[in-house]
Simulated assay, not measured.
Amino acid sequence: MTGTDAPAPPATIHAGCVLVDEAGILIRGPSGAGKSRLAQALIAGAQASGRFARLVSDDRCCVRACNGRLVVRPPAVLAGLLEVRGIGIVRTETEGAAVVRLVVDCEAELPERYPQSTDRTVTVAGISLPRIRVSCGDSSTTAAVVLGMLGRIERPMLHLLTE
């Protein structure tokens, strides 16, 4: 193997990631947009309905394309840490990695009511993924919408198995 054959090191991006069942949800947005609050609401909402959910990373994520999938890991220095506004940094249980199935972009403004089809996907580290844009003002409601959307993405070909 030559130096040019080595895989590129993972990129570190400003985002958080939550694992729900087997699907990673990458949460992006500017500082103060509500990424950590949304991550907590997603975990609580999923667990309340009997689903597995755990934080992968808060605030920063190492992303790498691997066999056509986007894999997220926490930077070593942030592993197991979560920022809780008004409290500070707390330790929490985390997963070591996740394969991203959905990207959620937190925005200060309300997203378009009917987004263009080109706005429904985004490319991260060369991998095209479904994306939704949300306003993270009410994280519980937003989490319910994201979890509902995740269910549609996780089972796009389920009908083929039941026909």
Score class of each variant (00 low, 15 high):
Ala44Phe: 11
Arg152Trp: 00
Leu38Thr: 12
Val77Ala: 14
Val146Tyr: 07
Gly137Val: 04
Ser140Asn: 05
Ala97Thr: 05
Arg133Val: 10
Cys66Tyr: 11
Arg85His: 15
Gly3Glu: 13
Glu93Thr: 12
Thr141Gln: 13
Thr141Val: 10
Ala33His: 10
Glu107Trp: 12
Gly3His: 15
Asp138Ala: 09
Thr12Ser: 12
Glu95His: 04
Val20Met: 03
Val124Trp: 06
Arg101Leu: 00
Pro30Met: 08
Leu19Glu: 10
Ile27Lys: 09
Ala15His: 00
Gln47Pro: 08
Ala33Leu: 14
Ala44Glu: 13
Cys106Thr: 12
Gly24Val: 00
Ala76Val: 00
Ser117Gln: 07
Ala41Pro: 00
Glu112Trp: 09
Leu26Cys: 08
Glu107Ala: 14
Gly151His: 03
Thr2Cys: 11
Leu70Ala: 03
Arg60Ile: 05
Ile27His: 03
Ser31Asp: 14
Ala144Asp: 13
Thr142Pro: 04
Ala79Met: 05
Gly148Ala: 01
Ala97His: 13
Val146Lys: 03
Ala98Trp: 01
Asp138Arg: 02
Ala108Arg: 04
Ser117Phe: 04
Leu55Cys: 00
Leu102Asn: 00
Gly137Gln: 06
Ala143Gln: 13
Ser57Gln: 07
Val56Ser: 06
Ser140Gly: 05
Thr92Val: 06
Glu154Tyr: 01
Leu81Phe: 09
Arg85Asp: 08
Pro130Tyr: 02
Arg131Glu: 07
Ala39His: 06
Leu150Gln: 07
Asp119Asn: 02
Ala8Phe: 10
Leu38Asp: 12
Arg73Ala: 13
Thr92Cys: 13
Leu70Ile: 06
Ala125Trp: 04
Gly126Tyr: 09
